[in-house]
Each structure stands twice: as structure tokens, then as C-alpha cells.
């Protein structure tokens, strides 16, 4: 493992300097590549009640009221139970734009997680209940994603007519997206009679304990990265 971390640190150092150069020279190109329909001076909407109240308290609202603002997304709500993290995951589960179904499925998985925990809790004798903590399914999912996020991935790079699987570090966003993808893949790989949400709940609970298929997938990838560390220099050569 120590060699892997060393590898990552060297790669990260190189990539940081490269990115810095890139940013410095080509700011315009990178920003235009996002293809936003809004001009750059548009600000993000404030849709949470507490944030809005804070704006009024600080008096910042007077300035913000005059700046053009992007439209709020459909998932932006001022609900007490809003969780931006799970909202994003719902978007990844969604197929063919059927967001309602995706939301139902994910919420059902959370319900299953909660139910299994409560059932265990209530079947314990009263003296043991004190030690048993029931964790919020949203929090548990957050922990599971943190456990599953990879630090390195393999990218095919062509050198001398041969494609090499080269280990490269991933940024946080890409790693999160990969984690989401693996959760969905693992939950889909099931028997026909098993429900998606039941499998998803199981995978999330396993991953939160640092066990299970999805965590194994991450470890396998890391192992592969370490095996291919001889090709690491193809990244910049």
C-alpha cells in the first residue's frame, strides 16, 4: 500500500502543476466548454430558508436582489428533509427521465435500511438497547459513498501503437460519480425475483461497514493500479 500512496503523491504533484499551467493559460476555453445557457455573471439561486434568512440578517439581500439569478432546479426545495447528496444520487438512478420512479426506488431503499435497523433494535433486550445506535439512512449512505470512492483509476493511453492501462488519480467529483455507478451496477446484478431497492439497501449497508461487493470492486481497482504502476510515466511522456 505504501508504494501506492507514494505513486499517487508523485502523480498528484505533477498533475497539480500541469493543471495550474492549464488554468493560467486557457481560462476562457475551459469555462466556455461548460456550455451554460447563463452568462457568467448570473448567480446561483438561494432556496434554503435558513440561507435566505441569513441574507436578510446580514443585509446582503439588497445587493443580491439586483443581480440576475439562475432558475432553481426541480430538485431544489426548501423542505426540512432536503439532502443535496441523495438528490444527486437519484439523478444517477434515473432512467429515461422518470425521476419519480427513481426517487421512489431510492427512498424505498432507505426505508429498508431503516426497517432492518429498527427491527434489530426492538428485538434486543432492554439493557443492550443503550449500546445500539440507529443511524440515519442518509448519513449511512454518505458514509458508504466515502468508503467506496476510489483514489486512482486506469485510463487507456496509446503509446507506440499499444494501449496501456495507465493509473491516474481521480478528482473528488469523478470518484463520487464512479461510486454511484458501482452502487447501481451492483444492485442491478441480481436475481429476477429480488427487488432493486432491497439489493441497493443491502449494498449500502455493507459498504458503510467497509465490506461487500462495491468496496471489493474499489480494492480490486486499486490493486490493478498498483500492478500497472510501471506504465505510470506514460501519463506525461
Amino acid at each position: 500500500m505504501s508504494s501506492l500512496t507514494k505513486l499517487i503523491s508523485t502523480l498528484a504533484r505533477v498533475s497539480d502543476t500541469k493543471l495550474a499551467l492549464l488554468n493560467h493559460s486557457n481560462v476562457q476555453i475551459i469555462s466556455s466548454a461548460k456550455m451554460s445557457q447563463y452568462p457568467k455573471y448570473f448567480i446561483d439561486p438561494t432556496f434554503r430558508n435558513d440561507e435566505l434568512n441569513a441574507l436578510y440578517e446580514t443585509g446582503e439581500v439588497k445587493e443580491k436582489a439586483l443581480v440576475p439569478c439562475r432558475a432553481a432546479l426541480t430538485e431544489h426545495t426548501s423542505s426540512e428533509f432536503y439532502s443535496s447528496f441523495t438528490r444527486k444520487f437519484i439523478n444517477h438512478v434515473m432512467r429515461k427521465g422518470n425521476k419519480q420512479l427513481a426517487r421512489e426506488v431510492v427512498e424505498k431503499a432507505f426505508e429498508v435500511i431503516k426497517k432492518t435497523q429498527i427491527q434489530k433494535y426492538h428485538s434486543l433486550p432492554p439493557e443492550k438497547k443503550v449500546d445500539f445506535t440507529i443511524r440515519d439512512p442518509h448519513e449511512l449512505f454518505h458514509q458508504a459513498v466515502i468508503n467506496v470512492k476510489p483514489i486512482m483509476v486506469l485510463t487507456p493511453i496509446k503509446r507506440g501503437g499499444v494501449r496501456y492501462q495507465v493509473p491516474v488519480p481521480v478528482d473528488d467529483l469523478q470518484a463520487t460519480i464512479l461510486a454511484y455507478k458501482w452502487f447501481i451496477e451492483a444492485s442491478k446484478d441480481k436475481e429476477r425475483t429480488v427487488r432493486f431497492y432491497n439489493k441497493l439497501a443491502k449494498e449500502i449497508m455493507d459498504a458503510a461497514n467497509n465490506t461487500g461487493r462495491v468496496v471489493k470492486k474499489k480494492l480490486d481497482l486499486h490493486k490493478q493500479c498498483e500492478a500497472n504502476r510501471a506504465y505510470a510515466h506514460y501519463r506525461w511522456n
Binding site: 426540512e80 428533509f81 431503516k114 429498527i118 433494535y121 440507529i134 443511524r135 440515519d136 439512512p137 442518509h138
Partner: peptide, 14 residues
């Protein structure tokens, strides 16, 4: 019964 775990639900707003 711990059916509601989310801390916001117990509040008045929730």
C-alpha cells in the same frame, strides 16, 4: 419507536 430518525422531523417546522 424510532420510525422517524431524521432530527428535523421532531422540530415544529418538520
Amino acid at each position: 419507536r424510532r420510525w422517524i430518525i431524521n432530527p428535523h422531523a421532531a422540530s415544529e417546522e418538520g
